[in-house]
């Protein structure tokens, strides 16, 4: 019985320190040092309404936008998730077929894989540089801008996320599309 009394005393102490104290400390620190990212890296319009988050993918389906990777949850920012399909699954082949059709990919001009494979969270904000370049023709046609301007736009914003530790360059879709709007 005394063991339970002691356990309750420890519960109180650990709740106070590890939940109350610790959370407050990190919260204050974050809000003081990095208020922008601490609140979700939100992107707002001039009128203050929120467009979205720099870090969260949003749906783009019209030809004039760069399109993100497929999302198994429909880009739901309040209920993220992946497809959880096996790489051998026929369902994936079916989705792949739809994406290929949407992008108009052919054997001569195969679709970069990241545009066919859904991300783990369904909210991956990035696509590979190759995937962005792949879409230039469509976006350029829809917007009536020269493709080389778009290519410059992509190349300027593409980066290697891990520096020399990664060789695949990626680019944020929302960032590209915001740049298109300007």
């Amino acid at each position: 019985m005394t063991a339970f009394v002691t356990s309750l005393r420890l519960t109180a102490a650990t709740l106070l320190v590890c939940v109350g104290g610790y959370t407050t400390l990190i919260l204050v620190l974050a809000q003081l040092v990095t208020p922008h990212t601490a609140n979700g890296s939100l992107v707002t319009r001039a009128d203050g309404t929120v467009i979205g988050s720099e870090r969260i993918a949003q749906a783009f389906s019209e030809p004039r936008w760069f399109w993100p990777r497929p999302s198994a949850v429909g880009y739901n920012g309040a209920g993220a998730g992946g497809s959880n399909k096996s790489p051998t699954s026929a369902d994936l082949t079916e989705r792949g077929r739809q994406v290929v059709a949407a992008h108009g990919a052919t054997a001569a001009r195969p679709l970069p894989a990241d545009l066919a494979a859904a991300s783990g969270s369904g909210l991956d904000p990035h696509i590979t540089e190759a995937a962005a370049l792949y879409q230039i023709a469509r976006v350029a046609a829809a917007r009536g801008v020269p493709p080389d301007r778009l290519e410059r736009l992509v190349r300027e914003r593409a980066f290697a996320p891990g520096g020399f530790l990664t060789h695949e360059r990626i680019v944020s879709v929302l960032e590209l599309n915001l740049a298109l709007e300007r």
């Binding site: 096996s86 994936l92 082949t93 792949g96 077929r97 990919a105 195969p110 970069p112 894989a113 066919a116």
Partner: peptide, 10 residues
Amino acid sequence: TQAFAALPIA
């Protein structure tokens, strides 16, 4: 991804 093997995906 094996499921994409037969599709025009790089």
